[in-house]
Design a protein around this nucleic acid. Structure first.
Lengths: 209, 209, 209, 209
DNA sequence: TATGAATGAGACTTCATTCAT
DNA sequence: GATGAATGAAGTCTCATTCAT
């Protein structure tokens, strides 16, 4: 009964606004996006946005937190299915690259605006993003406990390295309109680099073609 | 004796403006930085900026191109001193982390604004940034020729992975005012991850403790 | 009851802005008029002007076109009441001089800014002004058909002469704050000059004293 | 010895600036003309203009006064050669239309800027322009004394009518890049209108072809 | 005299936010 | 709740004018 179409309000309005914000922010960036444009795209009046969000900043932050919460919950579930650190790492990487295809706009906003936001919103702590990093940490810690990963591995640095690599590939994918990366292939390569390194000795357990 | 106070500020005026722009942009981000603030920081009048740069966008782009050109030239020289792909990779990584300390502001602007700019300056192609990536490519290609790196290594993906990892570490370093990363240690860890991977088999030539 | 004070100023807002623009433009000229001054005079916020007009140029052009359309429609109706070319010419001239009294500001803007605008708005074609000239042409053509006016009369030149004479008198009237011209007397003199010429032979049909 | 070419200064500099100002003002109008553009066109530095003129306004006024003085002196000499009011009127009209061809820029500035200037330079009295009108007055007065012109002719109105007609024709000529008016023909028509009026009784003395 | 780099006041315009309906 | 016309603060950029050389 709830969830009416484009006009006529209904409780889906907040979600419509968030979706519109993702779309517009990802296309133009936070600062170049106009509130009125988001309103138009969401099919609501400008003022309506202020019934659901405190201001434009709050819209961005809410978007981060709520969407990232979904992403984190989802990846946690996926990863849990993996048996051991390496399979879990692989799942994590593949999941991230898949997000690129399913939720390109969201990933773009995360990439670009999350960085920018650190500059203009001094006080904002990206809680949910840190949780996403935490999922990587857990995999790395597991690997160390299992003995799969090096004992001296600096998890704080390594988790950033993993995320940074994925994020940069994603950025390149998203910006190059020609789509010269195949996300699945990229996932494989990234996984292999982190699992085995760049070198060719390749005594790793799982077989790659 | 050069560099007069009020009028005639000397030929360093353009450079002073660029330095000020790096400082302000890195502190507040491009959009939240006011031209008048940059002018004040550079010790020139607002209008003076427009004698040297077409507009605010041009200031950002000039900054990218000119400073990145220096960075690229410098890293190229450093890297050339390395004997083989692995030493060169290590030099590249260490150089990048060193930049963080010496030119934190520049690196911040590059990281954050270069991304943002892709949104608001559709036509801008970050030529010099691509050259920086090219330096990584050259190292990777060398490694493949030498036989040090895997033959099937996807250079296009791998170079982004290396840059992304470095960039993310740098971002974390720069944002955490507490400086919980030691850049030198981080460089060692990053190098090791890329050289050997996360796994513990560690049959690589150079000795790490 | 309509026309509220602060907010919601009523549907007359656009008209209020146009009126204010006429007043300010006529007092100071287009370039020396500040948008904020027009806004203040209209009793609206600066930004409100941009809800109704694209920019300052558009405000001037809209003013031309809309007010001239009224003037043209009005003079057409007046002139139609005249029986023959000479009576119509007289009505046209008297109507123009009357406008001076009723709509001094508008006439000033038309006179001064229409000219200036030819310089700064290369592309603008003053459609409505040309229609006003066309009214004169029609009177002149009628006079030729009637046999009242010379058959060799160059209508293109003559209509400009009539308008130019009226316009210059109007300018002199408007600029001399002392109002040394009596518009009605001036109208009579102008009519007589065009009807009979400067010479004293005076064999014209209508009786003048 | 004086009067060097384009560069190298010399006492012709002031004149070069005036010429450049006429050119630029006539092309773009006073407000849209930049001092630096006039300087460039005159082949002098921006600052040099301020050695010869108090400011931009003064440049416009000096231009009016000096160039109009030449025009007035010239037309006075020409007119003096005419025998009687009608021949003098004809000479005046023809002289004005000739100026259009020889000194188009100057005439344009006079037409457009003289009007505008009344708005922004409240205190400025266009002395030389009034002298130009005075030349017309003198012809009209002579005509009345001779008995050629009507005794009741309102000279104050009539002189504005003559000037206004000429000025409007000139404006139309100058603005229509197609040059659809032939200045000589226009002069003839204007003369005839003022001498005889629009009507066809045509008992005037001089024969026209 | 001549120069032209530098100045800085100020205008136009945008757009996040409000609030009467 | 929903609307969207209105607000007005504030930023980018221009350009007449100055003055050290």
């Amino acid at each position: 009964m709830a969830q009416r179409g484009t006009r006529g309000g209904g409780p889906a309005k907040r979600e419509r606004i968030l979706r519109a914000a993702i779309k517009i922010f990802s296309q133009k960036g936070f600062f170049s996006s106009k509130v009125s444009e988001i309103a138009r795209s969401a099919g609501v009046a400008d003022g309506t946005i202020y019934l659901y969000f405190k201001n434009k900043d709050d819209l961005l932050i809410s978007l981060f937190e709520e969407k990232m919460a979904e992403v984190v919950a989802d990846v946690r579930e996926q990863v849990a299915a993996g048996d051991g650190a390496l399979p879990r790492l692989r799942i994590f990487i593949e999941n991230h690259m898949n997000l690129l295809v399913r939720e390109a706009g969201l990933i773009e906003v995360l990439q670009v605006e999350l960085r920018q936001s650190n500059k203009f919103m001094k006080e904002y702590v990206p809680v949910k993003f840190l949780e996403y990093l935490e999922v990587i940490s857990e995999i790395l810690e597991l690997g160390k406990r299992e003995g799969t990963f090096r004992q001296e591995l600096n998890v704080t640095v390594a988790r950033r390295a993993v995320f940074g690599a994925l994020d940069e590939i994603a950025l390149a994918y998203v910006l190059s309109r020609k789509r010269k990366y195949n996300p699945a292939d990229a996932a494989t390569e990234i996984y292999r680099i982190f699992a085995e390194g760049l070198c060719g000795t390749g005594q790793n357990r799982e077989g790659w073609t």
